[in-house]
Design a protein around this nucleic acid. Sequence first.
DNA 1: GGGAAAAATATGCGAATTCATATTAATCGC
DNA 2: GCGATTAATATGAATTCGCATATTTTTCCC
Lengths: 174, 174
Amino acid sequence: MAIDDDRMEIDRNAGFVGDYLLYLLAAASDAASADFHAHVREQGLRVPEWRILACLCDEDGQMVTQLAQLALMEQSHLTKIVDQMATKGLVKRRSDERDRRRVRVYLTAAGRAIGTGLVEKARVHEMLIVSRLGTTDAARLKAVLKDIHAICRGGDDAASQAPSAPAELEASVS
Amino acid sequence: MAIDDDRMEIDRNAGFVGDYLLYLLAAASDAASADFHAHVREQGLRVPEWRILACLCDEDGQMVTQLAQLALMEQSHLTKIVDQMATKGLVKRRSDERDRRRVRVYLTAAGRAIGTGLVEKARVHEMLIVSRLGTTDAARLKAVLKDIHAICRGGDDAASQAPSAPAELEASVS
DNA sequence: GGGAAAAATATGCGAATTCATATTAATCGC
DNA sequence: GCGATTAATATGAATTCGCATATTTTTCCC
């Protein structure tokens, strides 16, 4: 009956996909990141490089494997990106003193400069989204996203790490 | 001071990244999907193929470009995956009668069978996460994720589609 | 303390993904 | 109706990405 046959947008509220949590997460992540990722690329960086810089700005000298986990990519892939970033002069490797299997990745001065600059822009960009979303909704969202991460990523630290949302407001909205 | 130097997990609550919305979205999406995506691959499908099947189960005979948008991938990539799926006998192409530039993708019987089967499993898997999250939190989460999608993905249908959050505070940031 | 098992990273290769562009069809202006 | 512009999809080359595995160092156990 409804003529969705032509160039109309798909009705995202009908059907399975439009209300499927995993899809909504992926779609929201994509949509929310698109703008900033475009900005990152305009700066001559690729998204994985930005992620690595951001993670290193938080804590410099991380191990390759940890860094890969944190930056949401595979270890072997991270190794290769770190190669390129080292070539570009954004980071440098140094093997750990105590355990020489480990390789730690450090920011160079240039890498830190670019990284902190982008982090600042990311903060601004995030604030834009948060304000459009409503600060309370945004805060709740972040808490739930952390819960999902804790729940789904091995139940290891789920109980201890996520005291934020679960207890918070069990009866506010509808 | 804190000895996170060794094999301790990175403290996700310290630093920028651990509370950055875009990161939390990506990390939650990855973590939540990991299980089910592994299941999909065990069934001999890749994730993009599963996404296409799911989208076609919702609405069969979609255009290539629309389908790519919905399935969160590039058009040229979708074209290639549809090629492979057609070879596997999961879908078939047919060019649109009225506009022969358009190519519509239809499920075969086999494709529909596999698709509906996976959708059922996805429903079960989703329910597992939702129950661990709390149904009210999950419902709120879905609403906010839809808002984000509407807000960030061009303001096209943001006003009409998202009556839940956006009206809240229109005058906070610049 | 010495050899087996495990941990951390790197490497090679094949598949996936993207980018630019070609190709085909429809629409618009005149 | 005809050429120019736009839309929809396909194609090819270049890159990225992921899996399996090699390599190096450490730990474990006897």
